[in-house]
Design a protein around this nucleic acid. Structure first.
Lengths: 351, 351
DNA sequence: ATCACCTGTGGGAGCGCTCCCACAGTACCT
DNA sequence: AGGTACTGTGGGAGCGCTCCCACAGGTGAT
């Protein structure tokens, strides 16, 4: 027993070495078993596993991180104040997908908010210390320095939403163009001809793509595109009110409205009601997001569903691949992938 | 230059040793400066700080964790599915307080959900690996094994909500008893005499305490306590409906209702309306939580505000203290503190 | 002058892993 | 027989820190 009892912070957790002694093998072999290396005989593996179970061995993450230069953790960075994170279902859906995909991995997920400048600075320190193997960046604004910082530090990262010009990070987005097209095509198939569009904030790339989809759908069907039928909004209910009022006064003959978000559609609906237009009899209405609002609206709102949860899952897939690939051939000149997921039109009574 | 260039994974991050060389001091001295030890002369400190800045040195967390046996991270564990976390403002308020209090610390916060069994197992592994210095446990259910696990592993932890019998963890709670008392006293001061109470889920200790507060407030004011006026609810709107209906049929003469949550109050309000009772003219109504619902109800709801954000802040305070104290004298027989924060009655038009 | 005791400082010895080289053993060609 | 190759295994050499002992040099009491 008392070999040379130097160690023994008594009750301490068992180490690799102790497991090795117990199993009658070497340190390296235990390490191989723990890490699932195939080059271990079945008998040895069994012996080691028994020792691990008997001793209740749990690897020391810090030691592993130090020796292997990895942390087995990835961060979900939300460059927003916490309040927005909780207010918008977008984030919780992403998180759900991410969590599901990560569930059978050894990776640990950290949630980091970087809304304030102070938090930003902390995050920069955190990343500089390489405390995570990779980063998921959701909701990046146009002039955000974070993507640049990440590629400078050579930290694998995936961003959600459309990739803006400069950055070279992998991204996952939903098909805003296609989603808009399907909404407009649906309205045309219902016999509507004077279809208006209330846009989102046009400094958001996705909103711009929806306008493109709207235009192209009309043009390809041989309809003229009447610019008077396009009114800028800002994704809010308020914006929906304003836009709908000006549309009604400008084009009283419109028979359908495609809004760039469900919330905007709700605002439009209210104005339409007040103006005595029945939905869908007089004016058909289609929204975007397929949020809870859409289901509970009266009448229930046809809306374009984005596969947000799946976006979360894909982001993790891509990130894990990138982390795994980093070692063999770092940045082998390949273009970073940009994945675009299909949307789905959910038809309800409003159209 | 080329001393013995063995190291040099070129472009690698600078180490303590390199900073020491640059500053012309020893490794130990740099470590002392980094960790803010007072036993360093001003001149040396300045030299080291200059070297740190020039080299852009950032300590390697893994190495530090390994050597010092601490992680500088704490976990906020939510033993619920993610959906509930997002649905209930309670969590986001706690998180806000925690985040604020942690902002000027070096501690990193991890958010961990442990709703499913799978997640539970992962968490257990995680804790066994001592990957965090401490744990904040919010919303613990009666028979949850987590508190026991934590004290077994000797991981500092603070739980939110009332401390149930067995466990010996530090806890922070709001004064459910006092909150209920203040609500009832307020109603009595408004001249109400037949005050009903719709309880919360009575297997939740806090709900039980609110009933106690209700009873004692009446008794101490010399009012008889009529058990017919107490109807069990479950914190939900549905429960509010049911409870209010049975109260109305049993005690049509009631002139006030104290509900154990705002949501329950909203349910009760609906039934009262349908029964033709005006609020507050015929029946005064008081809720609990002072959530957004309370402000937006028609009429706005008087409600008992819990200082949830402050609870978050206090939890961190206590946890950090406990982490700091662990070393000098581990568990010196002292009772774990249980902190109870005062509530505040927010008076609005419903009473 | 001697001792005691501070303050500042350098650097050895780990912390518990992973990586990788070395090597025994077996197998299958020449 | 000798070579070549592969499988399984042991263990040395770090990874970049913190802790702590040793020690130089100063200060003040005896």
């Amino acid at each position: 027993m008392a070999t040379h009892g130097t160690r023994g912070r008594s009750g301490g957790r068992p180490t690799l070495e102790e497991v090795a002694a117990r199993a009658g093998v070497g340190r390296g072999t235990v390490s191989r078993v723990i890490n699932g290396s195939p080059r271990v005989s079945d008998a040895t593996r069994a012996a080691v596993e028994a020792a691990v179970a008997e001793l209740g061995y749990v690897p020391n993450t810090a030691a592993r991180a130090l020796a292997a230069n990895r942390t087995d953790a990835i961060a979900l960075v939300v460059p927003e104040p916490e309040t927005r994170f909780f207010a918008e279902p977008y984030f919780s859906d992403i998180l759900k997908g991410v969590g599901a995909e990560l569930a059978d991995t050894e990776m640990q997920l950290l949630l980091i908010f970087a809304g304030s400048d102070k938090e930003r600075r902390r995050l920069a320190q955190y990343l500089a210390a390489h405390r995570v193997d990779g980063v998921l960046l959701v909701s990046v604004h146009a002039d955000d320095p974070l993507p640049d910082l990440l590629s400078q530090l050579e930290i694998p990262a995936v961003i959600s939403g459309p990739r803006s010009a400069a950055e070279s990070l992998t991204s996952v987005d939903s098909d805003n163009y296609g989603g808009a097209r399907s909404a407009v095509e649906h309205l045309m198939s219902r016999g509507r001809t004077r279809i208006a569009h209330i846009t989102g904030r046009l400094d958001v790339y996705g909103a711009q793509r929806r306008v493109d989809g709207y235009r192209d759908a009309l043009r390809d069907a041989g309809h003229p595109v009447d610019d008077l039928l396009i009114e800028p909004g800002d994704f809010t209910e308020e914006g929906g009110h304003r836009a709908m009022r000006s549309l009604l006064s400008r084009c009283p003959d419109l028979d359908a409205v495609f809004a760039a978000s469900d919330v905007t559609a709700a605002g439009a609906r209210q104005v339409l009601r007040e103006a005595g237009r029945r939905i869908p009899d007089d004016v058909a209405l289609v929204g975007y997001d397929d949020s809870a609002i859409a289901r509970h609206m009266d009448p229930p709102l046809t809306s374009v569903r984005q596969p947000i949860e799946e976006m979360g899952r894909r982001m993790i897939d891509l990130l894990l691949t990138e982390i795994a690939d980093r070692r063999p051939a770092m940045s082998r000149g390949l273009e970073r992938p940009q994945m675009v997921l299909a949307t789905e039109l959910v038809t309800r009574a409003s159209s």
